[in-house]
């Protein structure tokens, strides 16, 4: 199979999507020696190359972070660019949607769109992997990301062997679908201590912006006095 991966993260090479794909490819290359081109949609001046890669691939994977419960603008632009009837479409297409929020429920709406998009371009739909809780993986200790990375490795292995996503891994990755009542209770207790905002607060402080965190620069009162 000629596989091409499109990374739809606006963060380009600093993206969490890139890290997940690296893990996927560790597994993939164990069983498939063919090099896999990775195209970054954030490089918006490479539209010609993008189209060529799309047209010459047998199988395509598109990975992106969830933006306002759907695909980021650059991914939508990509979809618009390849929808033309004169463009040869890949035999198969699959998607990986990762989000900052831990629950899969945020991503299931765009999943329906993606399935319909595959139908629209007449490619076989390989499914959508959904993984929440990805924001912060770059600063987490190894022990915290070990399981996640291992899952993406196995996903890659399975993909190389079967040209499909592993249904078992997909099921594991998309948990939790929603927060359990126990976890909601715990979150509410923790939020009283401010611990739930630790990630945001530490970054706000690092940037010397903590005291401005509630700024409302565009409220009427603010810009009428400016």
């Amino acid at each position: 199979m000629k596989l091409v991966i499109f990374n739809g993260s606006p963060r380009y090479k600093k993206s969490n999507s890139k890290i997940l794909i690296e893990q996927f490819l560790i597994g993939y290359t164990r069983f498939c020696s063919e090099t896999v081109p990775i195209h970054y949609l954030a490089k918006r001046n490479r539209k010609k190359e993008e189209k060529e890669l799309f047209q010459n691939a047998d199988t395509i994977l598109v990975i992106f972070p969830l933006y306002t419960d759907s695909m980021p603008g650059i991914v939508k632009e990509f979809f618009e660019n390849v929808i033309d009837t004169d463009i040869k479409t890949p035999k198969k297409i699959g998607f990986i949607v990762q989000s900052g929020f831990p629950e899969a429920i945020h991503s299931i709406y765009v999943e329906r769109y993606l399935e319909k998009f595959a139908k629209r371009i007449k490619s076989d739909y390989l499914g959508t992997i959904i993984k929440g809780g990805v924001e912060g993986i770059q600063i987490m200790p190894k022990s915290m990301t070990k399981k996640l990375f291992r899952s993406f490795e196995i996903l890659g292995e399975h993909f190389a062997k079967n040209e499909a996503f592993s249904p078992e891994i997909n099921e594991i990755l998309r948990k939790p679908f929603k927060m359990s009542p126990a976890r909601i209770f715990l979150f509410k207790q923790l939020s009283k201590t401010g611990l739930t905002n630790f990630y945001w607060n530490s970054n706000l402080k690092k940037n010397n912006a903590f005291r401005n965190r509630f700024d409302k620069p565009f409220s009427k009162e603010n810009f009428s006095t400016q």
Partner: peptide, 14 residues
């Protein structure tokens, strides 16, 4: 396009 830099959340809030 948004670049996901999060300046609006933790550098220059808002």
């Amino acid at each position: 396009y948004c670049t996901g830099c999060w300046s609006c959340w933790w550098k220059t809030p808002g």
